[in-house]
Each structure stands twice: as structure tokens, then as C-alpha cells.
Simulated assay, not measured.
Amino acid sequence: MAGYVATSAEAYERSMGRWSARLAEAMLDALALPPAAAVLDAGCGTGALSAAVAARDPDAGITGVDLSDAFVAAAQARVPGARFATGDVTRLDLPDGAFDAVLSLLVLQFVPDRAAAVAEMARVAKPGGLVAATMWDLVGGFAFLRAFADTVAATEPDGEAFRARYWGDPVGSPGRLAALLTGAGLRDVAERDILIRQDFVDFADWWGPWASGGQGIAGAFVAALPEDRRTRVEAAARRAYLSGGPDGPRSFVAVARLATGRRGA
């Protein structure tokens, strides 16, 4: 069973990138960063959060790190004034206490050692600096992807294992991110929901990026299927999307969990 795939920035933008950009804005609304802050985008992906920071404050000093060479290149092209590098968020090649704010957008669910990642985020924050992480609430607040996971769990031999891999260990569920930040020794830890709405023109708009791009978790699962099973999954997913109605627009509420904390003096 394939895991998270991050090899094509263009395909990622068609599937999840458009929603990452929207969530990045909502995250920054909640954080209110200081002016001209030194900001680390830990697990920067294609640069949605870095771009949002740069648009709000051209004087911000932005550094981004991600495992995917393709995503790092896309982020650099998107935010030319920032500094991006390929790297592992669990072993940051950055000095202690270098950043006013260390941010993570939609990353920790897919990091095998989350505690190590958050410890590194805390390490590179300045004394009193902000550490913040956001992740979709896959179990209770991400209906558009849950519909896919439940479909393959019901129809595919390895579908239940796929669902359990991500929905059985949901770091975006209430309390999980806050516990990670507290475990890293951060103070003033708090957690809250961020709600956005995700809109799709029709079934093809919902399904197409997964079927053609192979990115993320759903796209990787679909891409690994043999043709006969892929056709079966598509038909079942269509029924889930339509839910007895005609094809056309659908709108889903998406809930992300935001946790914040401060490094001690």
C-alpha cells in the first residue's frame, strides 16, 4: 500500500493545494504574527503558507523546509524572496532559537516521529517564540476525504488498512496536537478549530485530481490499483459523491485543528 506521495507540485495543487492556500489564510488570521518576523515554514510543501505570510508582510524573513525536492522547487518559484531547502522536519539543519514563529501546515499527520518534529520546531524557536501546527481533523471534520476512505474500506481488500493507517491515528483530532506541543515543553499551549468550506464543481472535479495525479494519500492509493479495481473504486466513489442526487456542485465543510504554544525563556 502506497503512503503519502509528493512528487508533482502541479498535481498536488489540483487536488489539495487549492485548499491548503485557503487554510493558510485562516491560520494566519488566528495567529497575528508580529511584523518583520523570522518565520520557519516546517514542511512547507508547495509554499501555500509561505506565500500567505509574504503577501501579508513583505518584510518577513521566511525559511521553508520540506522532504520533497519537487515541492521545494515549486515553493521557491512561488515565493522568490524566501529561502527554501530540502530537509527533514525531525532533524532540522537550523540553529537553536533562530525564529520568531515556527509554523507547520498540514504536515504532522504524515510524519512518522511527530514528537521529534515538534521538539525540533520548539528548538529553533526563539525564547518566547511562537510554535503553531495545523492539521485537518480527518475523523470528524474532513467529509470530502472521509467519503473516499469509507468507500475503499468497504470495497477494496486493502481499503480497511488504508483507512486505519490515517483515520486510526488522527493527529488532527481534538487534544492530539496540544499534547505534542506540551510534550515538547512549550508553554501557554492552546487549541482551537478552524473551519473552511471546500467546493467542487462536479464529480470529475472531486475525483479527477486523485485519478490523474497520484499525489497525497488518496491519489497514491488510486494510482497503485490495477485498472479493473480502479474502475470499481471510481464507480463506488461516484455513488458516494452523488448520494442519490444528480451530478453537479457539492460543498463540504472542512475542519482543521490549530495548536499554539510558546517556547520558554
Score class of each variant (00 low, 15 high):
F84E: 02
G81N: 04
G64L: 12
A85P: 03
A119L: 05
L138G: 13
V102L: 13
T63E: 09
A147L: 15
G61I: 12
A115S: 15
T155G: 01
M121T: 09
F142V: 10
V89I: 14
A74F: 09
A85D: 11
F148E: 00
L103C: 09
A154K: 07
A85W: 09
L103N: 05
L145I: 15
R146G: 03
T151H: 01
D169W: 05
P80L: 02
A149V: 01
Y166V: 05
A164C: 00
G87D: 09
A147V: 09
L130R: 11
V72F: 06
L108D: 02
G140S: 10
G141M: 06
L145P: 00
A60L: 08
F110P: 06
A133I: 11
V65N: 04
I62V: 15
R146V: 07
D93N: 11
T63S: 14
P112I: 11
V72N: 04
A82F: 12
V152W: 02
G64A: 06
A164I: 01
A149R: 00
A82Y: 10
V131C: 05
A147F: 00
A143W: 03
A132K: 10
D93Q: 15
L103Y: 05
R123T: 08
A82E: 10
V139E: 13
A98Q: 14
F142Q: 09
A74Y: 07
